[in-house]
């Protein structure tokens, strides 16, 4: 079952943090283990507030893990690295930079913005469907277009692992559908290494099934692995596939698993602390 050499190795990962005014220690992730194979697209689903975003943040290197091992290409993750990039939930584009300059930012940060880098950026602008909009500024872009820039910015540095933190959560239903198709198309088209290794966080189960090779279901927080489901739907995937019995059956099965976790959550969640800081709020769940 395990491939010979995993891209990302997650072993007994535990993430704790202090929360609230009293600074009580709480676990967000507890004993999470799985592997991600090279070129695999995995989606992580779980009840809201289960710690999936916290886990992603740790893989990005923004917060430390308090136990276990987290390795990318056999190297321990102990901070942000050039081998990973993150597609943010809020597009977080710099309003003072236009589309092209925003996409260039990662390369510029790496000191790799040479002729080849610029060519790659120009290619990505076309690939994500923003041809001719390169000199627009973020305030002129719709939500969907902003997320295309966000995605292109993450792809530009050609990372080993790309992390996506509910990138379509804030979009309206139609734009969301379009972006899901676009993501699969971009995935299959981005020529550098067909299908980069990716981890996609979402709470939308059909979205996870549609996009991913594997769907991981996390428990209610502190998160551990509940199910690891292989999605054997053929690629390239089309929107029509969402109405096939196989797709629906798989979605239903996963929804049931997530719902079962949410039910437990409802009973045992009296003292949930929410801070003004929304990231800590997510982590506290």
């Amino acid at each position: 079952m395990a491939p010979p050499r995993p891209k990302l190795r997650v072993r007994d990962v535990e993430i704790g943090h202090r929360s609230g005014r009293k600074g009580t220690y709480a676990l967000a992730v507890d004993g999470l283990s799985f592997d991600v194979a090279p070129n695999e697209f995995i989606a992580v689903v779980g009840p809201s507030g289960c710690g999936k975003t916290t886990f992603l943040t740790a893989v990005a290197g923004l917060i430390p893990i308090s136990g276990g091992t987290l390795e990318l290409d056999d190297h321990r993750i102990d901070g942000p690295g050039r081998d990973r990039s993150l597609v943010f939930q809020q597009a977080s584009l710099f309003p003072w930079r236009n589309v092209v300059q925003n996409i260039e930012f990662g390369l510029k940060a790496h000191g790799r913005l040479d002729a080849a880098g610029r060519a790659r950026v120009a290619e990505l602008v076309e690939l994500v469907g923003l041809g001719g909009k390169g000199d627009k500024y973020p305030r002129e872009l719709s939500g969907g277009m902003s997320q295309r820039v966000n995605l292109a910015r993450a792809l530009a540095t050609d990372p080993e692992l790309i992390l996506l933190d509910e990138p379509f959560a804030a979009l309206d239903a139609q734009t969301r559908e379009v972006m899901q198709e676009e993501l699969t198309r971009i995935w299959q088209a981005d020529g550098v290494k067909a299908g980069k290794t990716a981890m996609f966080i979402t709470h939308d189960v059909p979205e996870a099934v549609f996009l991913a090779d594997r769907v991981l279901v996390l428990s209610r927080g502190p998160a551990h692995l509940v199910a690891d489901i292989h999605v054997d739907l053929p690629r390239p995937r089309t929107p029509a596939m969402k109405r096939t019995p196989e797709f629906l059956a798989m979605s239903d099965r996963i929804v049931d698993l997530v719902m079962a976790q949410s039910q437990i959550g409802k009973q045992a969640q009296p003292g949930r602390r929410v801070t003004s800081d929304d990231h800590a709020g997510v982590a506290a769940g």
């Binding site: 990005a60 290197g61 923004l62 942000p80 690295g81 050039r82 990973r84 990039s85 993150l86 943010f88 809020q90 977080s92 710099f94 930012f105 990662g106 510029k108 940060a109 790496h110 540095t157 990231h279």
Partner: peptide, 14 residues
């Protein structure tokens, strides 16, 4: 904005 600084951190900007 915290998010701007986070982008800089993720891409390892000097």
């Amino acid at each position: 904005d915290r998010h701007y600084l986070q982008v800089a951190t993720v891409f390892c900007a000097p």
